[in-house]
Design a protein around this nucleic acid. Structure first.
Lengths: 334, 334
DNA sequence: CTGTTAGCGCATTCAA
DNA sequence: TTGAATGCGCTAACAG
């Protein structure tokens, strides 16, 4: 029931070809005619149908945004939302629509996400919030669908990714502490079956070694990225090595837990023990003392992913690994 | 280049009608034929094109999700993301696709969001993150496009909304304090040109009056919803009325600021002063003492909006105001 | 039960 | 410079 190209043609007294040409920037339409057509179109409130256009052009100019399980990532919502904003804004600028997609609904509809994309003729997909051990992971890697992963280090012929340099990020965090003359720096890491934990450990070690400081295994303790875990880990660390003057945490949540314990234990922050976290969660700026941390450029991860995808789509660029630098946020806890 | 219905028909040795019927659950296809067709389709990896389907059916089965300015809502991202998850999941269950949309990109493309929706033949829109004074507001209200607002109390012939009962929410919060035998309860409200502030004030007053307690203007102070503001407001309140035994805040951030001040001032929470916030932000559960608060059912707001929209679309239901109950989250600060 | 035909709204040859 | 005709992949009358 919306007005079609035919309505406009009729009302303007021309053929549909002319209307089409007038709208699509062809040079072969008389100035007079063109003006009249455009005016009539406006009067009639005509809007060309993207679906008809997609059908004949055989391209939809739209991509999917696969957000794994929406609720499987408690605490990382702020992260996902910022990335989402970056993705959408850049993609919109580049002329692409984005359709939401989640594994939850795919699962319940018993159709693979590849099928979902095929049905809608989506030209590519950006995948985020997915863990490496997700069964859908394999599908993403194998599929011939052009895709870009966020924090998903998988590189294949049609599959690039964007992530943050965790080694470098951790290194920055520790170097910051070293620059404040700390020498006995504890490290509360996450569990080792997370890729980021391994990288952040590397960064911690690298930073120390760059300064000629030996890595002391007693200073390193593993936890689970969460508040309670960080609290317990800090207690354990302090018991084993009461002489630490600074602690680097692989997540802000653990750092918050750690600060809680330190304060209970009567240690002043940062005078007695300096604290640096990782993630740059919102809370960090509100606690006392405000948390120094190393964060990811979330919005920028989104725009980068968008640009990479469009590059692959339009200019047949090779998929690549885009590793963004982490950014140090220095506040009062260090 | 994807496989079409014709390819399947040819390969299965039937007409395209038969394939179409086999796929769309018609009863008039022989069991044998049907099985063969489906098998062939699977072998060929055939997926019916939604765009062709949309064109002929004159309906896209997809709706837009308008997220005002993505970055204009610092601090409310977790809120928007949860709502988004609810919207998407429910909409997917109901068979609708959701396309992202923001006023930022609309503005830069110089096209109204109505035009955007028309071009894509979107059947409806859900609007969120928009403030009442946004110029796009008018467009939403006027447009003949079926739409549902989140926290946007606008009701018109094709425009319903979902929001949380702020009067009731505040009432619950204060009643909770009353049940703990508090009688001198301070109220740190947000600025009065926000709708929610007015409602929450009503709730505060109602709760007191229900108990026969007179509202004491000295106990009410206004601030800006943020941490610093809450801190200052609390200081001012305590100075004026040092005898308060509890404070109700119109936002969690202000409550956090307030707790900071109370602790500095040597008041124990909740023994000397009990604290209740509003919003249920994530941080609340991690601070010490954990913050009692009244929150919105974010995910449910999303699912409700999705259901309302689909109801209006499929069953021509009248737009309505869906007001969800707030939910009390009782923790250690009260 | 199955096949033939027309047409959804548009872009694009090819003629005029 | 403009117009008539064809087809993108699919559904829906209608015929057989």
């Amino acid at each position: 029931m919306p007005v079609t190209i035919r309505d406009v043609a009729r009302a303007a007294g021309v053929s549909i070809t002319t209307v089409s040409h007038a709208f699509n920037g062809y040079e072969d339409v008389g100035d007079e005619t063109k003006k009249r057509v455009l005016q009539v179109a406006k009067d009639l409130n005509y809007r060309p149908s993207r679906v008809a256009r997609s059908l004949v052009l055989q391209q939809t100019q739209s991509v999917g945004l696969l957000i794994s399980d929406f609720n499987a990532n408690p605490g990382s919502n702020h992260f996902l939302f910022d990335v989402l904003a970056g993705i959408h804004n850049r993609l919109a600028e580049l002329g692409y629509d984005v359709t939401l997609l989640s594994t939850t609904t795919a699962r319940q509809q018993l159709i693979s996400y590849i099928d979902f994309c095929t049905e809608r003729r989506l030209e590519g997909v950006i995948v985020m919030g997915m863990r490496m051990d997700d069964p859908y992971m394999q599908e993403v890697a194998d599929a011939s669908l052009v895709s870009v992963g966020i924090d998903l280090p998988i590189l294949s012929r049609h599959c690039g990714y964007v992530m943050t340099d965790n080694v470098g990020g951790a290194k920055q965090g520790v170097k910051h502490l070293l620059s404040k003359n700390h020498r006995r720096i504890g490290f509360v890491n996450g569990h080792l079956h997370a890729v980021v934990s391994i990288d952040r450990l590397r960064g911690y070690e690298d930073a120390l070694q760059d300064e000629g400081i030996a890595v002391d295994p007693e200073l390193i303790v593993h936890s689970d990225f969460l508040v309670e875990g960080g609290e317990k880990a800090t207690a354990a660390l302090l018991e084993r090595r009461p002489d630490v003057t600074a602690i680097f945490y692989a997540s802000d949540l653990m750092a918050l837990g750690g600060m809680r314990h330190l304060q209970k234990a009567g240690r002043r922050i940062p005078e007695d023990v300096a604290v640096v976290g990782y993630d740059n969660v919102d809370v960090g700026q509100w606690v006392v003392p405000a948390l120094t941390t190393v964060g990811q450029k979330r919005y920028e991860m989104g725009t980068s992913a968008a640009e990479m995808l469009v590059g692959m789509l339009q200019r047949k660029e090779e998929p690549r690994a885009c590793v963004l630098q982490a950014e140090m946020v220095i506040r009062q806890s260090s």
